[in-house]
Amino acid sequence: MRAAALWSLLWLDLRLAWRGRLFAVTLALGAVMAGAVRIFAPAELGGAHELEELAAAWAAEGGRLTTLRPQAQAMTLQARLVPAVICLDVLVVGFFFGGVMLLQEKALRTLAAYRVSPGGAGLYVTSKVLVNLLMALLYTALVLVIVPPAGASIGAIAGVMGVVSLGSATCTLGGIALAAPFRGLSSFFYPAAVASMVLSAAVPAYVAPAFATEGMSWIRALPTYQAFFALCELLGPGGRAGVLPGFLWISGVGLVITAALAWWLTARRVMQEVA
């Protein structure tokens, strides 16, 4: 019975997301971002020969070049940008959508109709997570089609989808939890903007890893930071296999915390203030 109820609620949420153009917005964003990376980001390694020349010159002076991560291989800029494009949607947009879906239903007061049905908060939150998950996976697939990862195995692609799923679920739950206390979209906008700014602090850290040190090491605890490197690891020869367990660990904890928060706030707060 609960499974049947979940399917029917999911079908409702899918129609709402589809007609609210959330699918269209997501896929258009994916096409534009991935298209831009495909067209503008160089797909060849630049500077590798320069490095070799530099090492040779250095050796001629009697110096010795030490490679910190010998297993790390250089990635093209294009390959390095793909994880960023994927994370953008999954983490930042997914986060907004979770909150927006909830607040729209608050504003329409359709939540009151749901509240007096045998549905319940758990089912409500689960259905929202699954809809956003589907959008995130479609987005990721589109990005990977437009900018195909060179030499990534099926297993690696499956891993990417796994990372995306985990990240999307955590972010939808976070968005719902953050939106729960707010009445409408306008008041949710500022906290959501702040939250996504914090989450996107991982971008400079991803581009220049030194950014996440010297008092900024908290950035490494952000799910975004972990997701960037996990995706990078899966999509290219990043040579930092150690980040995968880190990602799983941080997102696992994040998932549990946000799920508990989202459920609790929806049950105790959202469902109590409707009608």
Binding site: M1, A5, L9, W11, L12, A113, P118
Partner: peptide, 12 residues
């Protein structure tokens, strides 16, 4: 019609 039926699946 959809509004009328959209929550019916929650009832057994």
């Amino acid at each position: 019609r959809e509004n009328l039926t959209c929550l019916l699946g929650l009832y057994d």
